[in-house]
């Protein structure tokens, strides 16, 4: 019951979001399916959002939450365009992976 009374330290949230970010980053590096890579990016964005909210509470400032709001909107826009591009690619090359799209090599 004492545990329940004391608010949980911000470090836990921050640590969790660090791990979440790392998982997302690793996923981005090891997966080849462009869709899944995209999802990994979303994971990283969520980690960052969590950090913002944690700081917003820690500092008693809603500004952090407002930033998360903007991140959400931008993420939505990004997904829409990103998926549009992926659709364009996959329609013409079914089964293409990120490694197949290496036309821009130096």
């Amino acid at each position: 019951m004492i545990l329940a009374a004391t608010p949980i330290s911000a470090s836990w949230y921050l640590g969790l979001s660090a791990l979440l970010f790392t998982v997302g980053a690793v996923g981005l590096l090891v997966r080849r399916n462009p869709l899944v890579m995209f999802m990994c990016v979303e994971l990283m964005l969520n980690a960052v959002n969590l950090t913002f909210v944690t700081f917003a509470r820690e500092l008693d400032d809603v500004g952090g939450q407002v930033v998360v709001f903007f991140v959400l909107v931008v993420a939505a826009a990004e997904v829409v365009i990103g998926l549009g591009i992926i659709v364009g690619i996959l329609r013409r090359r079914p089964g293409a992976t990120a490694d197949d799209l290496s036309l821009l090599k130096g």
């Binding site: 969790l16 791990l19 979440l20 998982v23 997302g24 690793v26 090891v30 997966r31 899944v36 994971l43």
Partner: peptide, 9 residues
């Protein structure tokens, strides 16, 4: 959260 993240990967 973490299980889901691992699941994605």
């Amino acid at each position: 959260v973490l299980a889901g993240a691992f699941g994605v990967v």
